[in-house]
Design a protein around this nucleic acid. Sequence first.
DNA 1: CGTATACACATTGTATACAATCCTGCCGTG
DNA 2: CACGGCAGGATTGTATACAATGTGTATACG
Lengths: 235, 235
Amino acid sequence: MARIRPVPAASRQTVTESVYQALRRDIITLRHRPGASLTEAELAAAYGSSRVPVREACRRLQQEGLLTAIPYKGYFVSQISSREIADCFDLREVLETGAVRRAVELVTPGEIRDLEKLAQVEYTYHDWDSYAEFLEHNREFHVCLAALGGNDRLVGVLDDLLGTMQRFFFLGLDLGDFGTQMRHEHECLVNALRSRSADEAVTCIREQIAASRRRIQRALVRDGIPLPLELDAPH
Amino acid sequence: MARIRPVPAASRQTVTESVYQALRRDIITLRHRPGASLTEAELAAAYGSSRVPVREACRRLQQEGLLTAIPYKGYFVSQISSREIADCFDLREVLETGAVRRAVELVTPGEIRDLEKLAQVEYTYHDWDSYAEFLEHNREFHVCLAALGGNDRLVGVLDDLLGTMQRFFFLGLDLGDFGTQMRHEHECLVNALRSRSADEAVTCIREQIAASRRRIQRALVRDGIPLPLELDAPH
DNA sequence: CGTATACACATTGTATACAATCCTGCCGTG
DNA sequence: CACGGCAGGATTGTATACAATGTGTATACG
């Protein structure tokens, strides 16, 4: 079906892996607030393992941009700044438009049908758990779309990026019921692909990203304060 | 001067860091052949440390794409496939053109002067050591150029990508004396920036990347297609 | 009272020992 | 001869113990 997804290599259920996933989930769902301080010992106790797997998990999350490590000091959950958000959205636009320009040339009817299935997902407003599931499917859709461009390296980068951005999306979803709207956006993209119109697809992606950006801006404003969340706290 | 360069945070001279740099150097300079098998114990002995720092270094290199890890089996130096090369070049084009489109709007005269200095570097044909130095400076130039676009996240991704690609470049440099040519290409880019012409800059980048791609293709053909190239083993 | 210095504490960095896993090849059995 | 189980070795995965580092604090001294 829809391409490789680098490797399931690391998905062998090892302690490191489970700590990584648990910790990542807790950061993305904002259980660990941006700016919060974490130590290896603390996390090891919390997730029931020794420091070694915790360490590896933290290194990965650091690489992804969700954590910041300060030697001999500890780890800190990355702040959500408007600058960071803007950077992520801009990069996403660059990557996705780049990929889709190739995709319209390479895509096959079968792949379009597969993608169409992925586009169907929605979420239930106010159901916190369904947000997480929806976001995973959404990520899957965009990654598979990009994969149609045939550049595995680019797909990997986008996958990482969307992983980081999940934290932002979480803020936006609870603001209203955008499920049908987002599904419509996805279908719009699939149609553009079907007619092999690069310009149409690019426009569609741009609008989609702009809409997502607006949602998050609104959520940030609503949750009190412009951003960043509790910035400048450590004085 | 030329922007932040995320952090020198990890550059505190720790064992992990020195192993990482040494191992990375040996992979990029093809001392470890593509496809070669490496074990943690072996590397620990070779670089004079315990397995833990080796492990962390390998994880980082894996993330960068220079190593592939197979659980309970070992690590393998990533192959250089023409597909991989094409992907990297395409992604690079997407990132750099994306960045420079912003850069022409934001760049200041002072930054242009700084960049001009970085553009001056060349290398000495057939001097293996000077290749490495040149490639570092070349990377610095392109990263700083991208940084002018103001998207730190994008810069980070590009930095990683160029790091991986150094291995390819190594092949191309020894093929002839392209030092002056490449310097000219850099200056061309600086001029485009000065006249704030996005189209000119993009064209320039495209040509530059195409030229680089051709050099490497030629090198691969010369060295007998399907890599690897033999290397002077340490015996 | 201000400043510098030494010391203690918290945290990560590193080493070593042991457990889990996977592959290979042997050997027995049908 | 083919096939399956089983044991041995190699390698990573994990836990624990110890060293290095950096930061803040208390204390002595000017």
